[in-house]
Design a protein around this nucleic acid. Structure first.
Length: 872
RNA sequence: GCCCGCCUGGCGGAAUGGUAGACGCACCGGACUUAAAAUCCGGAGUCCUGUAGGGCGUGCCGGUUCGAGUCCGGCGGCGGGCACCA
């Protein structure tokens, strides 16, 4: 990539972003443009803009540039609209990578994290974001996580925290709990040992207590993307069905029956087997006496806890030899299998299999040669010939081969089957939730310590308020596997706060999702000596516009919604929903490159030739251009924002990332696109320089046609920008500014026309102010050039369009014959239907096509179209 | 596997059910220059053809409508999530 020359040449003066950007950043800071009080007294309406805060990995990446640019456009725009805007920034600073760095390089997680933060703060500041840096905090500071510990104890006191057992991925060689991403093909990423599932006693937040409310509120959240709401609905997974039991023909380990949950009681007559989760108590009982069953259960354990892995694994089962009776089919019995695809966490951990009408069941049945009995006949199906092959029929239909259910449709049959189960006393209608309680225990060092003490005599005791925060010890070692807090010689040994006897401090730390579930509330009063200052939170919450990646559509957002409710229940807040408006951005992608030896190459190692082929910059060897995909270190298809900003300036980076496509789609970072954005910054500056000396006098009485045309374009741009920024159509906003710039250039060529000087100055001034949210430094520079001594763009109100100049003076109406475009006519905006249709009929090409034909229908959509329908 | 999206010229994309391709990138032509770069001006979906007119065209197949990129059904490809990555 060639260095863009930025020196000022005598004949082509250029905008020097290297000098201008730091200068304006300093000016904004000096004037406190972006600072707001916890409890403002300016009387302005509030607007809280928040982007998902970053994990301090070391450097900002393009995803951050996109996220924070989007948020900054909103913040600057709303500020110009007269709002008092809260726009804070902080650090999601706990997490695994710091601990990995400690194990791999011997650097302490705190040192690693704070150095990363220091570096990334500078990078973010270079972007010229309108942030209130006075509110900055990192979640790994005791000032934050100590307050989080108070919330944990509030929740504990309110009955929203429980201790339960749950399965974890266990590395038997390292003796460590593994995150799902640390399990690769069933093995621990470091030890290579086969992973096992292990049952641990852990802390849980009772999010299921809010399941119904979390679901119902989604319908009211009309400023959230529909797809996010749908994903959350499905995740919460409210279902209605039946819980019923099948009596075991011979009891197993004292257990008489198997409890099953089903959403398809209508298909009970199509039953062919019962399947148990490998963790089911009956499966365990059989495994205890049957080595083959034990081997199968052990094999299932090696799948780990990831649902994606379990559900994509080949379906396997083990026939226990047990049989169950059927509630409706006297005398008939069915086999009981243990199956690797049945989840212990959902329903009762046991299912009845109806292969004809469930895809997983049919795959299982075909593999093991189990019965397949269709009981739902598709509409217009023939009962004599309808059969199920390898695809289950899950659509609507009529029940048949099902005794008393015959002839009912699916939903009628569900109700009827449940009524019968209740009558027989073997089952009942129930509602069920897919949502599980939120396990927050982590056996790791770099997280918020869970503030409880285990006393052999008194049980679990909360850490007393005067002993908070429970601070992480600095002197930990990472030389052996497992939790460093557990290995620490003294930290966990404390006196019981109740009886004073020797007790053990909890060594589990919180899931880092906890840290990010209330940071938005802490930003309202980051120095408060309680989790949040109620008055500040009441003023600023909810967040008016939250912006972040779609990858957080479920977990982070759902946990934050739960936390907000729990904080309200315990008196910290007065709102239920944290984020009034949500916008989810797409990923930043880039082409990937591979050398002849198959190794991935960084974009800066590659030269693209004019014919599109690629070669290695230094060796000249041919390079394979791979797919465009999400930037990732492993594919080396990353572009460093720091380098881009150094080379082209922050405004160019911001402008490109806004201009290229709609912000909710994936964007491809291209070098030519960035160069184009850079050229535009220079072009705007050149246009402004040509306008220096245009004096802002009184508005002239008359404008010649070219000046009037420029004024129309200017005012339409104001209207279009306002609409585009309101609706996150930032790429459209950019396009309108290009149009305005093109119109200004045209005006420059007609400089002598009446009123043109005034129109040009107006257009240039508006160009600067409208571009302000997107290219804030350039906007200030241009505005200062045209209006020396006047207030900064950052302090100016948003321009208002003159409706008279926005309104069209004529409209072009498309004319169709039989739905095909055959011409167009220009009419007055208020022309009557008669006038328009008459003009359309007289349009020469239309008249030719209509000649001798009988018009049976004339459709006129005012301002849009005329369509003639002619007889066949 | 399950849930949720996305798919429009060479490329990114625009388009309240109403003239598909605004705007930009790349490309081509012209001006300026000794020349190049930069800049400025202009061109262009594609095919037939005479710059008049017409055919085709928004992943594929079908439907609703006077009219479908847009709504509905099915299919394909790509991507996000799946509870310990953040």
């Amino acid at each position: 990539m060639t260095e863009i020359q930025t020196e000022t040449a005598p004949d082509a003066p250029r905008y020097n972003f290297r000098a201008a950007e730091p200068r304006w950043q300093l000016e904004w800071d000096r004037h406190g443009c972006f600072h707001v009080e916890d409890l403002p007294t300016d009387g302005k309406p509030k607007y809280y803009v928040l982007e998902m805060f970053p994990y301090p990995s070391g450097k900002i990446h393009m995803g951050h540039v996109r996220n924070y640019t989007l948020g900054d456009v909103v913040a600057r725009y709303k500020r110009a609209q007269g709002f008092s805007v809260l726009h804070p920034m902080g650090w999601d600073a706990f997490g695994l990578p710091a601990e990995n760095a400690a194990r791999e390089r011997g650097v302490h997680p705190a040192k690693w994290t704070f150095e990363n933060i220091a570096n990334m703060r500078v990078e973010l500041q270079r972007m010229g974001l309108s942030l209130d840096w006075a509110r900055e905090f990192a979640t790994c500071e005791p000032g934050y996580y100590g307050q989080q510990q108070k919330l944990f104890l509030d929740f504990l006191a309110a009955g929203l925290v429980e201790r339960k057992e749950s399965w974890v991925n266990w590395d038997p060689v390292d003796g460590t709990v593994l995150a799902n991403e640390q399990v690769i093909d069933g093995r621990g990423w470091r030890s290579g040992a086969l992973v096992e599932k292990k049952l641990l006693s852990q802390w849980f937040f009772s999010i299921t207590k809010y399941a119904s409310d979390l679901l119902a509120a989604l319908d009211r959240m009309d400023r959230w993307p529909e797809r996010v709401r749908t994903m959350q609905k499905n995740w919460i997974g409210h279902s209605t069905g039946a819980q019923l039991h099948f009596p075991l023909v011979t009891p197993e380990a004292g257990i008489q029956q198997i409890e099953v949950y089903t959403t398809r009681p209508d298909t009970l007559f199509g039953m062919s087997f019962v399947a148990l989760a490998p963790e089911h108590p009956i499966a365990a009982a059989i495994a205890a006496r049957n080595p083959q069953a034990a081997a199968f259960v052990a094999e299932c354990r090696q799948l780990g806890t990831s649902e994606a892995v379990i559900e994509t694994a080949e379906k396997k089962g083990f026939d226990t030899g047990l049989r169950v009776a059927h509630p409706f089919l006297a005398g008939k019995t069915f086999p009981v299998w243990i199956a690797n695809f049945v989840l212990m966490e959902y329903g009762t951990g046991a299912i009845f299999g109806c292969p004809a009408h469930d895809q997983r069941d049919i795959e299982f049945a075909r593999k093991y040669g189990l019965e397949v009995t269709p009981v739902v006949l598709p509409p217009n199906g023939d009962p004599a010939s309808f059969a199920v092959g390898n695809d289950a029929y899950v659509g609507p239909g009529t029940i048949y081969q099902s005794g008393f259910l015959d002839g009912l449709d699916v939903s009628e049959a569900k109700a009827r089957a449940i009524a019968e189960l209740e009558k027989l006393g073997v089952g009942r209608g129930v509602t069920n939730w897919r949502l599980r309680d939120w396990g927050v225990s982590r056996q790791r060092y770099w997280g918020c310590p869970i503030p409880v003490i285990h006393c052999p005599a008194c049980g679990v005791q909360p850490v007393p308020a005067d002993q908070l925060p429970v601070v992480l010890p600095d002197d930990v070692t990472f030389d052996k596997p497992g939790n460093p807090l557990d290995h620490h010689p003294t930290w966990k040994h404390v006196a019981c706060p109740s009886c004073g006897a020797p007790a053990r401090r909890e060594t589990d730390t919180c899931d880092t999702f906890v840290d990010s579930s209330w940071y938005f509330a802490r930003f309202c009063s980051p120095q408060a000596s309680e989790p949040v200052n109620r008055a500040a939170a009441d003023h600023w919450l909810p967040v008016d516009q939250y912006i972040g990646g779609i990858e957080h559509a479920i977990l982070h957002l759902l946990y934050s919604r739960f936390f907000t409710r729990a904080m309200s229940a315990t008196g910290s807040l007065a709102v239920d929903e944290p984020f009034d408006g949500l916008f989810t951005q797409g990923m930043v992608t880039h082409a990937s490159f591979r050398g002849a030896d198959g190794r991935w190459l960084y974009p800066e190692e590659v030269d693209i030739r004019a014919d599109g082929s690629a070669v290695h910059r230094e060796t000249g060897e041919a390079v394979t251009v791979g797919r465009v995909e999400a930037m990732s270190k492993s594919k080396r298809n990353t572009v460093d924002p720091g380098e881009i900003i150094a080379r082209y300036g922050a405004d160019t980076a911001r402008w490109f990332i806004l201009s290229d496509n709609p912000p909710d789609r994936d964007i491809e970072w291209t070098e030519s696109g960035v160069a184009g954005a850079y050229r535009f910054t220079q072009r705007v500056y050149r246009l402004a320089e040509a306008g220096v000396g245009l004096t802002p006098g009184a508005e002239p009485d008359t404008f010649g046609p070219p000046a009037l045309a420029l004024r129309r374009t200017t005012h339409r741009a104001i209207a279009a920008l306002t609409e585009a920024l309101e609706s996150f159509a930032f790429n459209v906003a950019v396009a309108r500014l290009y149009e305005l710039a093109n119109a200004i250039a045209e005006g420059d060529r007609a400089a002598a026309e009446p009123g043109m000087a005034w129109a040009r100055l107006e257009a240039l001034s508006m160009l600067a102010r409208l571009a302000g949210p997107m290219m804030p430094h350039l906007a200030e520079e241009v505005h200062a050039l045209l209006h020396p001594g006047e207030p900064m763009v950052a302090n100016l109100p948003w321009p208002k369009a003159d409706p008279a100049l926005v309104a069209a003076d004529s409209v072009t109406i498309a004319v169709q014959v039989m739905g095909k475009l055959r011409g167009s006519v220009v009419v007055a905006p208020d022309a009557t239907a008669e006038t328009v249709i008459s003009a359309a009929e007289n349009e020469p090409n239309v008249a030719r096509l209509l000649a001798g034909k009988r018009v049976v229908k004339r459709i006129h959509v005012p301002g849009r179209i005329v369509n003639f329908v002619i007889a066949a």
